[in-house]
Nucleic acid binder design. Structure first.
Lengths: 109, 109
DNA sequence: ATGACATATCAGCTGTGCGTGTGATGTTCA
DNA sequence: TGAACATCACACGCACAGCTGATATGTCAT
């Protein structure tokens, strides 16, 4: 618990800069309707690109583009369909997602 | 708990679109180094604009600009210093911040 | 009153990210 | 083999968001 309120005294001009670079970068990934929708859908289990594109009302290549960003960030990974190798299914990396959640909570905490 | 994995069967092209508009908008507010830094600093108590600008290495008017965005979103509010009304201290609206956190957790959950 | 300070507001420039289009790769089925 | 499909990678154009600089408003000291 830190000092709750009483605003008195002089401003302190020597406060340390908070480290929020990672959290801001993560928030940037969530700050898009399509990417946020992807992560939300993948919370319920794996989905292929065409499924998500249909649900989100976006084109396949657009969704694929956003998936590439999430993949580069390590939040999701791709797995080929067992019987139908045509379809590429994406699933969340739950460990990475949990780490991302912690980063954001360190800011909103 | 939903189906964990077994990727089999045909893609379902009739999945509902997840509602992530609010979460994406909120993430957009966090997706900036300056705004994220502000929210992080205000987690420890109120601060005036000049304090935060100094700590973040940004100009006063720039920080003021970002504060206006956070204020419009209801995440922070301004209070005049009791003894020195020159200084405008900002504090977090904890209820709004908690609601924002829940929105984001609904995506990362 | 006057000047210094703290903050807000607005206009303009610039960079960046999103959506799109296109071509390439790999898979299935006829 | 060849056609249709699923996905990826890359480049282009455009809209938007952030930084800056100038100006405006309010507050304190002298």
């Amino acid at each position: 618990m830190t000092t709750p309120l009483p605003v008195v005294g002089e401003p302190r001009m020597d406060l340390p800069a908070p480290d929020v670079a990672d959290a801001a970068a993560l928030a940037g990934l969530l700050a898009d309707r399509t990417r946020a929708g992807i992560l939300r859908m993948l919370a319920d289990g794996p989905h292929c690109v065409c499924e998500m594109a249909a649900a989100l009302g976006e084109r396949d290549n657009n969704v694929s583009n956003h998936l590439a960003r999430l993949r580069d960030a390590g939040l999701v990974r791709a797995v080929r369909h067992e019987a139908n190798a045509r379809f590429l299914y994406y699933e969340r990396d739950e460990a990475a997602v949990a780490a991302a959640r912690d980063q954001l909570l360190a800011v909103l905490g």
